[in-house]
Design a protein around this nucleic acid. Structure first.
Lengths: 229, 229
DNA sequence: GCCATCTGCGACAGAGTTGCGACACTCCGG
DNA sequence: CCGGAGTGTCGCAACTCTGTCGCAGATGGC
């Protein structure tokens, strides 16, 4: 069951039809309060959440959902909206889509998210998904909410891009991320980057991490990965 | 290959030059009917489609393209047609650019779209194969998501091609794969290789697998197979 | 056993990919 | 208007991967 939270009714209609055509059952909510009510009563497998909403905005809705549940959330943001891509990740959105997006892309993401959620449920214990706020790796600590990273007690001075990359890696240790995925996820609407941009952020991040930098492995011809522990 | 559909010839000329300078091969069509014909015969990787066109307008062209193919489409629209945005989404445009636009932005979008198309293809094929599962064979473990293979606990250093081949074999143990099939599946459209390329990958893979390499059997006159357990 | 094919395999070179420093541009705050 | 931080781009070097070739060995039909 998918909960769709979107106040633009025409767009909601389109998305709903597409999802239903793909075999999903869809519940719709048009504002933040309705969304929370629907989430509590229907317990969806996935929430598609617009950023701008009447009554409660998407960010606040996300925050409250996270207090009680680990439901995967896909956020919809408009291009040009002043959204720090990191903010959403802090609160625990699992993925993003920038308007306008294609229906094909939406479906691809929805499927991927549901699949991943299923896997996590099967294999991993809940703590990784719900603990969320502070990620760690050896002496490296990363707190998403305060946007602070420390290495062996020392504060790490990371740029926003570096921070986002490190966070993504820590969220999926062992998982190999392609450059295309990273560009799509971290860079969002700022598109501009080529593959070499990714390389450079990795380069800078590795340096700042010192010895721990080696834990970021290159997967030749694919992308990068944080070495599984 | 990029199909450019634009009736204003001066603009088309400028865009074409820019794209070609960026390393893309460009085909041009000046009206809707020509666009459909070109799309059917040339099978482009991306379509740049003007909204207003002689004979068939852009929307109709998009609709017909969508009946037969999922080619990514970048629509060019005149300023301020908000309602059309939703219609376009419904029919399946993947991105928009409002005239006038800068060449720089166009190029950025084109690059991003091709990248994303690749991502979507990847995600969907993973979905079919229910990736993320760990495949195994004796002491050999292979995890597609992390792109990591281990043999008796030791990490195996496999090239992308070797990895893909091993994954395919593990997914269909006992099944015999012809060289043609392997070229089609692993090499995809970039198969410049002849049959001996396959042989060589098998050779290298066998070596790296050590004793387990013998499990990859040669099917004389056909191709290769992983010995059923 | 003989021949036509097919496969195994080492060597090599070209193509592709990544590491990394240098530089330029943009965005902000002073 | 300046200066600094952040980040995209470029170029070069180093490295990895992979297709090709040649030849030896294996295989199967006759």
């Amino acid at each position: 069951m998918v909960l769709l939270v979107e106040d633009a009714l025409d767009l909601a209609q389109v998305v709903r039809r597409e999802l239903e055509a793909g075999g999903y059952v869809v519940t719709h909510a048009a504002d933040g309060e309705a969304a929370l009510a629907a989430h509590a009563s229907a317990q969806p497998d996935l929430v598609i959440l617009d950023w701008m909403l009447p009554k409660l905005d998407g960010l606040e809705v996300l925050r409250r959902i996270r207090r009680s549940a680990g439901t995967p959330v896909l956020m919809l943001t408009a291009r040009g909206e002043e959204t720090d891509r990191v903010i959403g990740l802090e609160v625990g959105a699992d993925d993003y889509l920038t308007k306008p997006f294609s229906m094909r892309e939406l479906m691809a993401r929805v499927r991927a998210m549901l699949r991943r959620a299923e896997l996590i449920r099967q294999t991993l214990s809940e703590d990784q998904a719900s603990a969320g706020q502070t990620l760690s790796r050896g002496t490296l600590l990363l707190n998403a909410e305060s946007h602070l990273a420390t290495l062996a007690g020392e504060e790490l001075d990371l740029s926003p891009t570096e921070f986002a990359l490190l966070e993504l890696l820590l969220r999926g240790p062992g998982r190999a991320f392609s450059r295309a995925y990273l560009l799509d996820t971290i860079w969002r609407e700022s598109y501009i980057g080529g593959d070499r941009s990714v390389d450079n952020v990795v380069l800078r991040l590795r340096k700042k991490l010192g010895p721990l930098g080696d834990e970021i492995e290159t997967v030749w011809g694919i992308g990068y990965r944080l070495r599984p522990e």
